[in-house]
């Protein structure tokens, strides 16, 4: 069983001064599955994300990532860019963080920075125009075009990313994260601000990432139509602790989850319950 886990979070605690944002949280994400982290606003979901992706250093606990080849990496010891570079964890942001003044294609090229740096002999080979680098750049452009085709943005490749519509920016951010060829893709509210049609397209995209590429996904989401439809496993948080976990069906019927949502926000609680019936 443990061999199937790509990510296991063990007694994760994060304090900011006197405030405990996350307390003794333990959960696991399975390989080639979609795991969702849900909970009312302020439950500490994004804090967990920031701990996993190295933007925060956890106060306590362990986060272990296991690659396909069995190599284990303790994420709480890596920091910053190394989590993306060595542990191959990619992420998107709740408030989209693209490079707005660069083209769509350039955004995807920046995502392949580490591969291209090596190919360019850390700039020196690239400066003299070595053919090996040109090949690598061509491959990088091909990969980028592939992803643009997948997210349906190929004809916008040469436009500035900042000029894209909101929904397109969301999809581009996912494509950019995928261009780093991650083992684990972390999505922070990918459906926020999308309309019904766009979030249906998002579901399809995420399912194809899981099924066709076998990339494991961890996502935070408020949109229950996304969470209930595509998640294989759901972890529910409230006030920094885990209150439930299981399959979408189990979570939906859990009285504690309903109480948490009812206590926090009627609309979301109704959404949890309705999406079951």
């Amino acid at each position: 069983m443990s061999g199937n886990k790509i990510l296991s979070v063990d007694r994760l605690t994060m304090r900011f001064g006197g405030i405990v944002a996350v307390q003794d949280l333990s959960f696991a994400a399975e390989r080639k599955k979609i795991t969702a982290l849900i909970g009312p606003n302020g439950a500490g979901k994004t804090t967990v994300f920031n701990c996993i992706t190295g933007f925060y250093k956890p106060t306590g606990g362990a986060i272990r990532l296991t690659h396909d080849d069995g190599k284990e990496i303790a994420l709480q010891r890596l920091n910053d860019f190394r989590i993306a570079k060595q542990a191959k964890v990619a992420r998107t942001f709740q408030n989209i963080r693209l490079f707005p003044g660069m083209t769509v294609l350039e955004n995807l090229m920046v995502a392949q920075h580490n591969m291209l740096m090596r190919a360019s002999g850390f700039t020196l080979l690239g400066l003299v125009g070595a053919p090996a680098y040109r090949d690598a750049e061509k491959r990088a452009i091909d990969l980028a075009s592939d992803w643009l085709k997948r997210v349906n943005l190929l004809d916008r490749a040469d436009d500035a990313a900042g000029n894209l519509a909101y929904g397109d920016q969301r999809r581009l951010e996912i494509a950019r994260a995928m261009c780093t060829e991650p083992a684990l893709l972390c999505l922070d509210e990918p459906a926020a601000g999308l309309n019904a049609r766009e979030s249906a397209a998002l579901n399809e995209l995420l399912l194809s990432i899981r099924n066709d590429l076998g990339t494991s996904i961890l996502l935070i989401e408020h949109d229950m139509s996304v969470v209930m439809e595509i998640s294989d496993h759901i972890v529910v948080m409230d006030h920094g602790v885990k209150i439930a976990q299981g399959t979408p069906r189990e979570v939906r019927d859990d009285p504690k989850v309903i109480a948490a949502y009812l206590g926090a926000d009627d609309e979301e609680a109704m959404a949890v319950m309705e999406s079951g019936s």
Partner: peptide
């Protein structure tokens, strides 16, 4: 921040 998330040192 986005640079760091993409593994750029």
């Amino acid at each position: 921040v986005a640079c760091r998330a993409l593994g750029i040192n």
